[in-house]
Design a protein around this nucleic acid. Structure first.
Lengths: 221, 221
DNA sequence: GTCTATAACCGGATAGAC
DNA sequence: GTCTATCCGGTTATAGAC
């Protein structure tokens, strides 16, 4: 799954991913056949399976690659924006923006996500490294906030789940250019930011402490 | 998709569902082939496709049937329990309990759910009737609560989504008998009930009004 | 031990005959 | 409304080349 040392023909692997992605983008994931991918890469069908366990696994490789673009986009916001709501919304919109060309491929990933044990699911062990890097980005959104220790520890993970929810919304969004989702992200992020501030109020601090404790007890990864 | 009038050979349709479900329960959804189902029903493989668009569509029929059992279980709690948290938890646990034998089949439904346009998705137009009946049950959980009008109107839908979240957790739960999920439902429902009460506080009423308005604006069905 | 090629297998789905 | 014949595409087995 990893491109470890620059061995002889990772070139082949990379070539396959590149070709597969172009084909997926052109024709869609379902429409593109393994035979097609292999042929375009100058390989026999079976050969592709030496490099990738399944068609879905090709998507994962590519998903990892797109994180780099996401990071670059997010970096810009995190270095300039100070408002919490806008930082959160910015991180999420950066993710969506970068993923926009891969909208249909993202659907495939989310279909897999519903299958908890699938290695390619965002919730799986195998995805941990990538997920952690994304959670780290959420943590950076909170830079400069004065927060209760337990809350500060748990919040990035909760924000990551919030982002997953936004992505699910995006996948359902039929509005032109998914404009509706982007507006929703702005407004929902503002709500979340408000909620984070409100959680500091005495009336709510008991509640939020308890909520955090429960999420910690029933965590899923 | 509906069993409308008791026409000639709905019998066949029913027979197929019965057989398919037994096979799914015995061997799992993936393992069971259309050929097997058709053979067991005394039909040719292609014939089954006259009655059902796909293997997945068989699950939907069956899911509708299981609602009746869920309703009966939920009814009992709703008629006897007065505490809000327990009513919500009870409704959800009734759903899970009834679905327990169909755990693996439920995974199939959720995998489909991630594909927004799939007719069998719980979010789809086609599922509206069933979804509405489930939302209605959530509304009944709130009987006896004094709530703001807008909140009262929107809350059942939000609680339904909360239930979807709990079901997703259940699908990931590896603990024996999914005991962890049942405890989580209890505690999370208590949090939700508390939150509903808190939302009446002056400090929060503005926030909750705004949240409801946003959810209304960006609703998905 | 790393990689490739060929030839199947298997099961979901479809076309069209009856 | 049911069947037969067939397609199609993901996947696997096998056999080897470098």
């Amino acid at each position: 799954m990893k491109t470890k040392g620059p061995k002889k023909a990772d070139a082949t692997r990379t070539k396959i991913v590149d070709i597969a992605m172009r084909l997926f983008l052109d024709q869609g994931f379902e429409k593109t056949t393994m035979r097609e991918i292999a042929a375009a890469a100058g390989l026999a069908p079976g050969a592709a399976y030496y490099h990738f366990e399944s068609k879905e696994h090709m998507v994962f490789d590519f998903y990892e690659m797109s994180y780099q673009k996401h990071l670059a986009e997010a970096e810009e916001i995190l270095n300039t924006e100070n408002d919490l709501a806008k930082r959160i919304a910015g991180e999420i919109k950066a993710h969506l923006k970068v993923s926009e060309p891969y909208f249909e491929i993202s659907k495939v990933l989310f279909r897999i996500a519903a299958d908890p044990m699938h290695p390619v699911s965002p919730f799986s062990k195998e995805s941990k490294a990538l997920r952690d890097r994304n959670i780290e980005l959420m943590k950076r959104c909170l830079d400069g906030q004065r927060l209760d220790k337990d809350l500060a520890a748990k919040l990035p993970e909760l924000l990551w789940m919030f982002k997953m929810g936004m992505i699910l919304y995006w996948l359902h969004d039929l509005s032109p250019k998914h404009a509706k989702t982007y507006r929703f992200v702005d407004q929902a992020s503002a709500l979340v930011a408000t909620l984070i501030q409100l959680s500091k109020l005495p009336v709510l601090s008991g509640f939020s402490k308890k909520a955090i404790a429960i999420f910690e007890e029933y965590k899923i990864f």
